[in-house]
C-alpha cells in the first residue's frame, strides 16, 4: 500500500501575539486527502495554528511566527508567496456562517469574479458544481437569485462551504464549522466532510469530541500552545498515550 503524501507540515513552529507565546515548537505532518481534527481546551492555540495555514493571523497586530509551514513542501511564509494565491489553495470555513448579503448565486461565484472570470456559462457551471459538492444544490437550485440570508443556518454554512470550494482549493480549513448548528444540520456537515475528503485535505477545529471521532482520520491534541499528542483518531480515542490527552477526551481536565 502506498503511503499518502504529506499535504501540510509545520516545522518547529512558534507563534507569538506580542509577548504571548501562543504556539510552542509545533511539529506535525498532515496527510493529503485526509481529515485532521484539532482538539484542546479554549486558548490552547488550535485556532491560531489553523489560521497559520492560510496566514489569517497576518493582520493581527503583534502577531509573528518562527519556523516553517509547508504546503506541498513549500514554505508559505516566504516573502515571495502571494497571500491571495495561497488562499485560493487553502479555503476556510468559520464557526458562524457568514454569507454576503447577496444572492445565493453571487455568493458562490464571488471568488471567481474577483479572479476576473466573467463568462456566464463558466460561472453557472462552477456554481452548480460547488453547490452539488456542498450537498446544497437540490435545496437551492430553483432560488439561486434569492438572498443567501434567507437560508437556514445549516444551509448558510453549506453555502459558505460551496463558496470556498468554487475557487478549487486543495485544502479546507474549518474552524468549528458545526458548533452553531442544530443536530440535523451538524449531521449534514459531517456527512459532507466525509464526502469531501476524497478530493480535499481537511483540517477541522472542534470542541465536540464525538464529532472529532466521527469525521477525522487523525487527531491532534493541543494544550497551552503545545502539541501534546498526534495520532490516528481511533488510537487517540481508545488508547491515548499522554495522560493529559486522556483527561481531556474523557472530560476530566483540570
Amino acid at each position: 500500500m502506498s503511503k499518502k503524501q504529506n499535504k501540510l507540515e509545520a516545522l518547529n513552529l512558534d507563534a507569538y501575539y506580542g509577548d504571548f507565546h501562543a504556539l510552542k515548537g509545533i511539529n506535525i505532518a498532515m496527510e493529503e486527502k485526509a481529515v485532521t481534527a484539532f482538539i484542546g481546551p479554549s486558548g490552547c492555540g488550535k485556532s491560531t495554528f489553523l489560521r497559520t495555514f492560510n496566514r489569517m493571523n497576518d493582520y493581527i497586530d503583534g502577531f509573528r511566527v518562527e519556523g516553517q509551514i509547508l504546503l506541498d513542501g513549500k514554505d508559505i511564509y516566504q516573502k515571495e508567496v502571494r497571500v491571495d494565491e495561497l488562499r485560493k489553495e487553502v479555503g476556510m470555513v468559520f464557526q458562524k456562517p457568514n454569507p454576503f448579503p447577496k444572492s445565493i448565486f453571487e455568493n458562490v461565484v464571488y471568488g471567481l469574479k474577483i479572479q476576473g472570470i466573467k463568462k456566464k456559462s463558466v460561472l453557472e457551471e462552477a456554481a452548480e458544481q460547488s453547490l452539488r459538492n456542498a450537498a446544497l444544490w437540490e435545496e437551492v437550485k430553483d432560488k439561486l437569485d434569492k438572498s443567501a440570508l434567507a437560508l437556514s443556518g445549516g444551509q448558510q454554512q453549506r453555502l459558505c462551504i460551496a463558496r470556498a470550494l468554487a475557487i478549487s482549493p486543495s485544502v479546507l480549513l474549518m474552524d468549528e464549522p458545526a458548533s452553531a448548528l442544530d443536530p440535523i444540520s451538524t449531521a449534514k456537515i459531517e456527512e459532507l466532510i466525509y464526502e469531501l475528503k476524497n478530493d480535499y485535505t481537511i483540517v477541522i477545529v472542534t470542541h465536540n469530541m464525538q464529532q472529532a471521532g466521527r469525521v477525522s482520520d487523525y487527531t491532534a491534541f493541543f494544550y497551552m500552545g503545545e502539541l501534546v499528542e498526534f495520532n490516528k483518531t481511533k488510537t487517540m480515542f481508545t488508547s491515548p498515550k499522554d495522560e493529559r490527552t486522556q483527561n481531556y477526551i474523557t472530560g476530566r481536565f483540570g
Binding site: 469530541m209 464525538q210 471521532g213 480515542f237 481508545t238 488508547s239 491515548p240 486522556q246 477526551i249 474523557t250
Partner: peptide, 9 residues
C-alpha cells in the same frame, strides 16, 4: 456518556 479511552475499555 459515550465513553472513550480508559472509560470505554
Amino acid at each position: 456518556f459515550t465513553p472513550v479511552a480508559v472509560d470505554l475499555r
